Simulated assay, not measured.
Amino acid sequence: MSRADQAASSQKHDVFQAIADPTRRSLLQLLVDQEIPVKDIAGHYPMSRTAVSKHLRILSEAGLVVERKVGRETRYRLDPEPLLELKRWLAYYERYWENRLQALKRLVEADESVHPRGE
């Protein structure tokens, strides 16, 4: 299998799809500072270990978590690198709203100079 094929197969889900689910966002928070075995991760959620594993697989396919075998145990940790794509996308909209709020501020201040309060 070529590197391109491997990359395509490992990117079955994009970051946006992966973080769309609140459980997966919670899993990312849990894995922020530590590598945790799947059995311990499952203990944090009111669902089966199989269901937790499915969520972890989606996060793994999006490149957001890395798994490592230690004996018979699979451990997971966060890989924050793919979140940069999300950060760049959100930065565009942050600038958009900042510009809109600045325009609103100028409009309100201009209106107050023409129509001062209390008169």
Rank of each mutant, 00 (worst) to 15 (best):
N99G: 04
R75I: 01
D33K: 11
K105E: 10
R77E: 12
F16W: 09
D111V: 15
V52D: 08
P116F: 13
A51Y: 10
I58E: 13
L83V: 13
D111P: 01
P37N: 07
M47G: 10
P82C: 15
P22H: 06
R25K: 13
L84Y: 13
L83W: 11
L90C: 07
Q29D: 13
A91Q: 11
S10G: 03
A62Y: 09
G71T: 03
S48I: 02
M47E: 12
P37S: 05
K54G: 05
R24N: 03
Y93E: 02
L31P: 13
V15P: 01
L30G: 03
A7L: 14
R117E: 14
Q34D: 11
Y45Q: 10
H13Q: 05
V114K: 15
A18W: 05
S26I: 04
A20I: 02
V38K: 10
Y96N: 00
A7G: 04
E67F: 03
D111R: 15
G63K: 10
A110W: 09
D40G: 00
Q29F: 12
K12M: 10
K39I: 04
G71P: 05
V32R: 15
R49P: 01
D79G: 06
W97D: 02
L84N: 09
G71R: 08
V108D: 07
L56E: 05
E94P: 00
D33W: 06
Y45C: 10
L84H: 10
K54F: 09
H55G: 06
V15K: 07
P37C: 02
V65K: 03
V15E: 07
L30M: 11
Q17D: 06
E94W: 01
A42C: 07
D79H: 14
V108S: 05
L84E: 13
L78E: 07
R3M: 03
Y76P: 09
R24W: 07
M47D: 11
P46G: 14
A20F: 02
A51T: 14
R57L: 13
Y92T: 09
A42L: 05
N99K: 08
V52E: 03
R95A: 02
S60N: 14
A4N: 03
S10K: 12
L101T: 05
L84T: 14
L59H: 09
S48D: 07
E35D: 06
Y76I: 03
V114C: 13
K39Y: 03
I41K: 03
K54P: 00
S2R: 02
R77Q: 14
E61M: 11
N99Y: 02
A20L: 04
G63N: 12
S53L: 04
S113P: 02
R25D: 04
Y92P: 00
L84P: 01
A20R: 09
E73T: 11
V66A: 10
V66K: 13
E81R: 14
V66D: 10
H13W: 14
P82N: 15
D111E: 15
S113M: 13
K105D: 08
L59Q: 10
R24S: 01
H13P: 00
A103V: 08
K87A: 15
K69R: 12
Y92S: 01
T23C: 08
I41E: 04
T74G: 00
L30Q: 10
N99F: 01
R77F: 04
V15T: 14
Y93P: 01
A8V: 11
